[in-house]
Computed example of a mutant assay.
Amino acid sequence: MVELLFDDIFKIERLNPDGKKFDKVTRIEAKSEKFDMFMHLDVNSEIYPLKEGEKFSMALAPTLNLDGTPDTGYFLQGNRKSLADRYEYVMQGKLFRISESSGHGGKAEIDASFGGLLMMLKGDPSHCSKFELDQRLFLLIRKV
């Protein structure tokens, strides 16, 4: 079974907090329910439109293979089931920064790029312990 690196339900608080920058991309600002994480995420709004106040489940996984084997990077057509079958929107990318602020109540922040669409996830460092720099990631979303 594939082990998820992160899995939570987010509520969208704001869309495009810095103003609209691109026609087909929406930056969402969202807060997670279970782990109290904060996220900025760029989504292709032409393919997967989201609205303020909506909730969605978001998971980060190192592979789409249900048995947990590493992903080859190639899409193989066929009847083979994958983790992507359980979600509505999937992006593949790479984690390019992990940082942690010092002091009591410090926060960890991970940054990933999915072909130029960015994600910033910030919160308690204990929820970011499974991540590694330059790690390949799959981001999976479905509305709840």
Rank of each mutant, 00 (worst) to 15 (best):
S45H: 11
H127V: 08
V2P: 10
S101N: 05
L133M: 07
E46F: 15
K107P: 00
E52M: 14
L41D: 07
A112E: 07
G105P: 05
R97K: 14
P49S: 13
F75Q: 13
L117T: 09
R14C: 01
L118K: 06
F138N: 02
I28L: 07
G106I: 04
V43H: 08
V144K: 11
D124E: 06
R97G: 04
L4G: 07
D23M: 07
K51D: 14
L140N: 01
S57K: 15
V43R: 09
N79S: 13
L60K: 08
L15Y: 01
E33A: 12
L60W: 09
K143R: 11
D71A: 14
D134C: 00
A112K: 04
F38C: 04
G68W: 09
K34A: 13
G105I: 03
A112M: 10
N65P: 10
R136P: 05
F35V: 10
R27V: 10
H104I: 14
D71S: 15
L66W: 07
Q77T: 11
S57Y: 13
I47D: 13
L15Q: 03
K34T: 14
V90T: 12
D18A: 05
P125D: 01
D8V: 04
S82G: 08
L66N: 08
E54R: 08
T72K: 14
M119K: 03
S99N: 03
D18C: 00
V25T: 11
R86V: 01
K94C: 00
S102K: 08
H40N: 15
K20D: 05
S45G: 05
F38D: 12
F75E: 13
R97M: 10
Y87N: 02
K107G: 02
L83C: 05
L50T: 08
L83Y: 04
G106F: 02
F114E: 05
Q77P: 06
L83T: 02
A30N: 03
I98R: 05
S101F: 00
D67K: 10
T72E: 11
F6E: 03
I9L: 10
E54Y: 08
M120H: 09
R14G: 00
L4A: 12
M119I: 09
I98G: 00
M37Y: 14
F138L: 05
L83I: 05
L66Q: 05
Q77S: 12
D8W: 01
K143M: 08
K11C: 11
L4T: 13
K21I: 09
D124N: 12
D111S: 11
L41H: 06
F6R: 07
T26D: 10
K20F: 02
D8E: 07
K31S: 14
G103T: 04
H40C: 06
E109W: 00
P17Y: 00
E13S: 02
N44G: 12
F38V: 09
K31L: 15
S32A: 13
A84L: 03
D36P: 09
M58A: 15
G123V: 02
L76G: 02
G106C: 07
K55T: 12
M58R: 09
P49H: 06
R80E: 14
D124S: 06
M58F: 15
A30P: 03
K11A: 10
K20P: 04
L117V: 08
V43A: 03
M39A: 15
D67Y: 11
F75H: 13
K143D: 04
D7E: 14
K11I: 10
F75R: 13
E33W: 09
N44K: 15
F131V: 02
E52R: 13
M58N: 07
E33T: 09
